[in-house]
């Protein structure tokens, strides 16, 4: 009984030569799995990169618009200030000219 079992075990565990092409198939599978993983990583990396680029572009545009708006409002403020100052100085000249050349008095002749 024990000898039979031993015999069976021996037969079961005897070295068996792999089928022809086994090594190539294993190697091919390894390569396939590696390239599949690489493809997945590459795909995710591409998606992440594209998302980063879109995010950076949106953020950049938003920043640029904010900066442009600030510059525009500042330019508007400067323009109004420049026109105010111009008006003020023209007014000084106008007042002075008016003081120097008073309007002729109406003599009531009606001529």
């Amino acid at each position: 009984m024990s000898k039979d079992f031993e015999q069976q075990l021996h037969e079961a565990l005897r070295p068996v030569d792999p089928e022809e092409g086994f090594e190539q198939r294993v190697l091919a599978r390894i390569v396939q799995e590696r390239s599949s993983t690489l493809r997945k990583v590459t795909r995710w990396a591409s998606v992440a990169l594209a998302a980063s680029v879109v995010f950076a572009a949106v953020l950049g545009t938003h920043e640029w618009q904010l900066r442009r708006e600030q510059e525009g409002l500042e330019a508007r403020k400067q323009l109004l200030e420049a026109l105010r100052l111009t008006g003020e100085k023209l007014d000084v000249a106008y007042q002075a000219v008016n003081r120097e050349a008073p309007e002729p008095a109406d003599d009531g002749s009606g001529a």
């Binding site: 442009r68 510059e71 330019a75 508007r76 400067q78 109004l80 420049a82």
Partner: peptide, 25 residues
């Protein structure tokens, strides 16, 4: 104040046409 042509154009874009002061400017 230094408003060159490009800054003047930019300022003009930010003038409110419904505001009389801005419209006059």
């Amino acid at each position: 104040i230094t408003l060159d042509p490009s800054l003047l154009r930019l300022a003009a874009r930010f003038l409110d046409p419904s505001d009389p002061e801005d419209a006059a400017a």
